[in-house]
Design a protein around this nucleic acid. Structure first.
Length: 382
RNA sequence: CGGGGCGUGGCUCAGCCUGGUUUAGAGCGCCUGGUUCGGGACCAGGAGGUCGGUGGUUCAAAUCCACUCGCCCCGACCA
């Protein structure tokens, strides 16, 4: 991506109403834009990170045997009345009426919908165990949205649901998810602690939450629940067991606030200059910075390097703006891109400088060996 | 919902208390031209504001009063 063809707008000052570090940095780096309290647009840079995190989650969910679907945000209120949660959720739900005056709502979570799907299709013990998940927007009319993206009213969530024959088998699904969660957060470079928690409105027998380390008091970035047969009994999610008897499936549910994970990564990885992305979720592997755009040689080499890396599928940002070196360096630091490839005066010796964002270490690399350097860095990070 | 704070060009803010030379300013950003070119460069010129909204007080309101909308923080509550 060339900067001049992109949609990246950085700002020198954090917005006046931002309080937490992740909120400030996401705004300054041009990752997000606030539309209303607790409602945000993900701009290209923010979206890239969101997608990287989603990809990691998707991979680990698939590895654990979960199957991806996509459920609707718009749901009939009647289904919630059936489960008894229409009253329980109360004002946390955004409720609306369609043109026929039918009561609808924007889903704050999807136990009801997924249960409805499973009760329609799963009839036999042969269909179990089953794990279904999705990555989708949730709507919750928070009493008080806070800390930018961390507590939003509309946010991206991965929610997974498990369906098993017995408590014991449900336990196995639960532990699989628990394991997958550990891997996900590890890959995102977030250190988490696991705490047993109050199950709240979700209900169920037992739950644990994954809390990210960091200054910010909120939250919890993942929460896993053993639901037992609460939902399946109320919503008639039944299967025919080996013994010919109909039984309610044993359920579990597992959530990760994807957009919140992005904030948590920043909370745990930044300095006074800006964000420090781990390679696994960085929007770009490297940023190419010609120090002087008036220097034809620098620009030419930068272009060649850019083409070369793109051919190798190494995702780089080429800062081709007519800006001073200071501005470009400051922005590179702010955006937190792991490697800065500086084309400057060392070119006369055939060298390119690579600066590692995290350690501030500088490497002088021969012009032809940049690709090799980055390939190795990517490999080492895995 | 209770408590506190804030709303002035794209952004950060000054001006408000003590209404009137402010035709409403500054810095940053933006546009044009020129000089620069390894840590947020410089010079010259320029564009851009219903001072959140409505109603009132007054000869006169960004400034005082009332209402209202929006945003932030603390608390209760929640993922």
């Amino acid at each position: 991506m060339k900067w001049t063809n992109s949609f990246i707008f950085t700002s020198r000052e954090p917005p006046a109403d931002a309080e937490t570090i992740s909120q400030k940095l996401m705004h300054q780096a041009g990752m997000i834009d606030k539309l209303a309290s607790g409602v945000y647009t993900f701009l290209p840079l923010g979206l890239k990170v969101l997608q990287k995190v989603s990809d990691i989650i998707r991979e680990e969910m698939n590895n654990a045997g979960a199957i991806e679907i996509l459920m609707p945000a718009l749901q009939p209120a009647s289904l919630w009345k059936e489960s008894g949660r229409y009253e329980k959720m109360g004002k946390d739900m955004i409720v609306l009426k369609d043109r026929h005056n039918r009561e609808m709502l924007l889903g704050p979570t999807h136990e009801e919908v997924v249960s409805d799907i499973v009760r329609k299709y799963v009839k036999s013990w042969k269909n179990l165990p089953l794990m279904l998940y999705q990555i989708q927007s949730k709507f919750r009319d928070e009493i008080r949205p806070r800390f930018g993206i961390i507590r939003a009213r509309e946010f991206l969530m991965k929610d997974c649901y498990s369906f098993d024959r017995t408590e014991r088998e449900s336990e196995i699904s639960y532990l699989k998810m628990r394991q997958a969660y550990m891997k996900i957060f590890q890959r995102c470079n977030i250190s988490v602690t696991i705490q047993s928690a109050d199950s709240g409105v979700i209900g169920g027998k037992f739950s644990e939450e994954f809390v990210a380390a960091g200054d910010c008091a909120e939250l919890e970035i993942g929460h896993i629940f053993k639901l037992g047969t609460d939902y399946s009994e109320k919503l008639n999610v039944l299967y025919m067991d080996k013994d010919g008897k109909q039984k309610p499936v044993v359920m579990g549910c597992y959530g990760i606030g994807v957009s919140r994970v992005v904030a948590a990564i920043i909370e745990g990885s930044h300095d006074e200059k800006g964000i420090i992305w781990p390679l696994s979720v960085a929007p770009f592997v490297a940023i190419i910075v010609p120090v002087n755009m008036a220097d034809n040689k620098q620009v030419e080499i930068a272009n060649n390097l850019y083409d070369e890396l793109r051919t190798e599928k190494i995702d780089v940002l080429f800062d081709d703006r007519e800006e001073s070196a200071g501005v470009k360096f400051a922005d590179a630091d702010l955006l937190g891109i792991p490697y800065r490839i500086t084309l400057g005066r060392k070119l006369t010796q055939g060298k390119i400088e690579i600066l590692e964002r995290k350690t501030q270490k500088k490497y002088d690399v021969e012009i032809g060996k940049v690709k090799e350097f980055l390939t190795k860095a990517l490999k080492d990070s895995k």
